Simulated assay, not measured.
Amino acid sequence: MRDNVNGLISQKNIDALLITDPYNMRYISGFRGGEGVLYISQNQHVLITDSRYTEAAQKESDFTVTEENKEHSRTELLNRCISQDHARTLGYEDCSMLCSDFNKFENELHVEAWTPMGQSVNKLRQVKTPEELDYLRKAESIGDAAFSAMLGYIKEGQTELEVAARLEYEMKMNGAEGLSFDSIVASGIHSSMPHAVPSEKKLEYGDFLTMDFGCIYKGYCSDMTRTIVIGKANDKQKEIYDIVLCAHKESMAAVKPGMKGCEVDKIARDIITEAGYGDCFGHGLGHSVGLFIHEEPRFSMTDQTVMKANMIETIEPGIYIPGFGGVRIEDMILITEDGYEDLAHSPKELIEL
């Protein structure tokens, strides 16, 4: 990891780099606390945090851990590092740093120039390591176990909030540290909203029920969506479900290194469009997942990124019809040297409860 960061420092022609994004802090240093700053140069690797986290930081990271407090502020400690390096140019994460934090650093740190890093630090996380892949597989398997348990729990009369609460309980009982995002549980006409918020609406016979959920395992996220029907599906529901399932399977089957994100998206989008529902699929086909739930690159109409082995992506086509309902099916996949590995193992065919 250090070699990649040091290479980035050389590439950007800067003397040192500040890392404040908590996900990049974890990725680069191993520190999971998320509160603090990394100072990285060719000569120094320093993690500055407060007394709440210093013990954990020393256990989790091989960086030099320095405590900030009333006597020694963060900027004072950073200036010591800068002075030791005689650093003149400092890189910073302009896509995630708050303006107020940047203004403070700019006013108090003794450097001559600031270099915005754009997405260059985040891009270091795109290709996953074997250890990361183990964590991601485990996280997705927790989602599988939770979904399986839910099939024996869900019934008419329950509210979306009750279903969401039980779903989150099942993930935690199967080893989740927490949720990778707020669970989406949408029934009936609510399922036409891709990011619907669970409500007090009760499940009714004939409802679509879309559940989009994910958990965190050792800091890494999972993401999965399944749509089922309460009772028996009607012909229209079956038609829509089959189109989405076809788009899901066909686009997944085509994935391999060398493809662009927009090319994978087009496969699913063309299937849905040719079936007459192109206007009902507004979001991208998928996104990367790692320490954060929505990472780059993406399967979208505009993403020109060339896919590489050991990248993680979601495949999540959908059709959403206001006043009727919607369907989304989502798995996380690993792009392999010659294709893909589906990390989810829950059934994809339409389930009627």
Rank of each mutant, 00 (worst) to 15 (best):
D303S: 05
N43H: 14
Y153T: 12
L203D: 02
S199E: 01
V197P: 06
N122M: 14
S222Y: 00
A233I: 11
K128C: 08
L47R: 14
E170F: 07
C262T: 02
V264K: 07
D15R: 05
Q126K: 11
T210S: 11
M224Q: 13
Y135A: 10
H72L: 05
G7N: 15
V197C: 09
D338I: 08
Q44N: 10
P22R: 09
E35G: 00
N4Q: 14
V127G: 11
H283P: 13
D207S: 02
G318P: 01
A165R: 10
E200V: 09
N234H: 09
S187F: 00
M150T: 06
G219T: 02
A186G: 06
N122P: 00
G118W: 10
H294N: 12
V264R: 03
C246D: 10
I48K: 08
G284A: 11
V229A: 02
Y277W: 04
D94E: 09
A253L: 09
D101H: 13
V229M: 00
Q304I: 09
H45K: 14
V289I: 15
E156S: 13
A87E: 08
S192M: 06
G206D: 13
I272G: 08
F147H: 14
M301V: 10
D3A: 07
M252V: 04
T89A: 13
G33Y: 07
A149K: 15
K128N: 05
A254G: 02
Y241R: 02
Q44D: 11
G152V: 12
V65T: 13
I154Y: 06
D15F: 04
H86Y: 08
